[in-house]
Amino acid sequence: MAADLAVREQAGTKQRAAGRPRRTGALTPYLYVLPYFAVFATFVLAPAVYGLWISLHDWDYLLPGKPFVGLDNYQALFDSSSAVFDFFWESMSATGIFTVLSVPLLLAVPLLIALMLNRSFPGRTFFRAVYFAPYVLGVAVIGVLWRFLLDPNLGLVNAILPGSAPWTTALPWAWISLVGVTVWWTLGFNAVIYLAGLQDIPRELYEAARIDGGGKWAEFRHVTLPGLRPVLLFVVVNTILLSANMFGQSYLITQGAPGTETRTAIMYIAQVGLRDYKMGSAAAMSYLLTVCLLIISAFVFRLFREKDA
């Protein structure tokens, strides 16, 4: 052991000696990272670790006693007789349903729009602005707006459509509304990212494809899609995370109704932590959600890496 250490020490000294002329250079990258790391550590890392600590307690920041309860808060999430079990998993499944329904649409629709907006035609800039416009609105604005439009008895949507549907108060209509509104609201963001990606694809590749006799579809499959891959990874992961964090739309448009079926995980966590002041339990829920999202993200990264290989 000691010998081992000594060897390493020596090696270190040698390295340092060899690197002497570039000593300042070795530190430079860390100095560049430092400002960001300071912010990251203060506002992400430290709170995350603190949150882990909170999740091991019955935590109300204003009560003098914050009893340590070990893993009880986590156990309760897996104990079907606990007060939080049903509500928590119902909210997780609501988040799951929303994510599964919205992500494919949020990947495909913006891509179609980006492809169209990438062609040159008169008024292109205008249309680019039009599709991006909803994204600049706050969730409060679009939430209240659509709650009025989708009102089952008084709303404009039911007045225009031949039939009438309970858009905000029954399933599956409530999910259709929430997903539809979200796609309309946020497609502009993904479309802009795609558009940037499309413009990075070298023109020569398209020319080459055409010379080789490839049609539109072949161009899309063999030039556009592979060219978008780096952008696609970002869009997929980002869209999944954003969908899994959905809060405002449900909060404002359906209020979690019918019952609590459209109450998302974040909505429930916020209620438990910030309204019922059971922050230990809420922290445990957040960590479980985080773990789920980490697994999904890791899976997506792998998927893309395999494709690359």
Binding site: R147, L150, D151, P152, N153, L154, G155, P166, T168, T169, A170, Q255
Partner: peptide, 18 residues
């Protein structure tokens, strides 16, 4: 009462004469 009354629709309907 109609089915599926949404948030505030009850009072809005009263104001609208429904």
């Amino acid at each position: 009462s109609p089915k599926n009354v949404a948030q505030d629709a009850d009072i809005v309907a009263l104001r609208n004469g429904k």
